[in-house]
Amino acid sequence: MEKIAALSAEEIAEIEAEASHYEQKQAASIEALKVVQKHRGWVSDESIKAVAELLEMSPAELDGVATFYNLIFRRPVGRNVIMLCDSVSCWIMGCDNIAAQLKGGLGIDFGQTTEDGEYTLLPVACQGACDRAPVMLVNGELETHLNEEKVRKILGSTE
């Protein structure tokens, strides 16, 4: 039980609410990881152990799930997470240029976090907004019809 202490009461309540929707507790594993990530930005080893205990799974079983899905972060990320769509329609519409601009502007490559812990830049698959390509997610919000100017503005506004 002491491990569960690594979770806040709020997190536990949210996870248990999700778990009640299923025949079996462990079905809530992905949602539970997302709850933790919502509150903490990422999922640490301690969180894995705590959530596993809550859902009556082993840490290994939960980590097998956590590492399968690409929207679960098992390493710390910056305060702002930028996920640029690199799938086909956005690629046709020039997402490579946007990528270059972001990398240059932030001084980091995909998969990296700026030194000040402000930004993490990640590539992401098709966002289902191909008619508004190129697009990216900034802290979960969809930004469409990207061009150089728009990207500059967005970066400016998150600071």
Binding site: S58, P59, G64, T67, F68
Partner: peptide, 19 residues
């Protein structure tokens, strides 16, 4: 057993322990 799992996906799949 509960402490050997497959981690990650595609051709990065990894068979091991949580730690």
């Amino acid at each position: 057993g509960h402490d050997l799992e497959v981690m990650a996906a595609h051709n990065h799949v990894y068979f091991g322990r949580h730690e």
